[in-house]
């Protein structure tokens, strides 16, 4: 896993961002020229969903998600680590649930299609939540392992 997956994830997120922008721009220009693209709006939001849920994990890996550290900043390192472990476990539980139900949702929504792209089932965009939550779960599990190791070594150091 590791590096290859990481680069693939970032590359895909960037690709979908570029696609979003390109399609929105093309849609505006085409409409101005009197030949609007029926599919532009839907393809843009489709690509954006994939961009968001892949990027959510990129942001987590880079610790970009904001946290309020009012209380935790004043605790002893041991307590802080304990709270962190608790938070991470809860996050992992949430992400696991999200992953499971996103698969169910992807199946249930198979009849629904994008309005502007009748051939494209909504399942394909729902899967972005599945992939995103799975990646977030993997990252969180990695953090749990780190925190757990630190916890066990804690008293000695």
């Amino acid at each position: 896993m590791g590096q290859r997956l990481l680069r693939l994830e970032e590359g895909l997120a960037q690709f979908f961002l570029a696609l979003t922008v390109a399609v929105i721009f093309a849609g505006g220009v085409a409409r101005f020229l009197g030949r609007p693209l029926d599919w532009a709006m839907d393809l843009a939001t489709f690509a954006f969903a994939w961009c968001v849920f892949l990027s959510a994990d990129v942001a987590l890996r880079q610790d970009r998600h904001l946290a309020v550290e009012l209380l935790t900043g004043r605790l002893s390192p041991r307590w802080r680590l304990g709270l962190r472990l608790f938070s991470l476990l809860l996050m992992a539980l949430f992400l696991a649930l999200l992953f499971g139900y996103s698969l169910q949702m992807a199946y249930l929504t198979r009849f629904r299609s994008f309005q502007g792209i009748p051939g494209l089932s909504y399942t394909w965009v729902t899967l972005s939540v599945s992939v995103g939550s799975l990646l977030l779960l993997l990252t969180t599990l990695g953090r749990i392992r780190q925190a757990w190791r630190a916890w066990r070594e804690g008293p000695c150091s």
């Binding site: 409409r31 009197g34 030949r35 609007p36 029926d38 532009a40 709006m41 839907d42 309005q115 502007g116 009748p118």
Partner: peptide
């Protein structure tokens, strides 16, 4: 025109150029 194909095709058939916008 609303984005669904039925709307779009109908307005196109009447002679206009349909634009899908929220």
């Amino acid at each position: 025109t609303p984005p669904a194909p039925v709307w779009q095709e109908s307005v196109r058939a009447l002679g206009a150029t349909p634009v899908a916008l929220p």
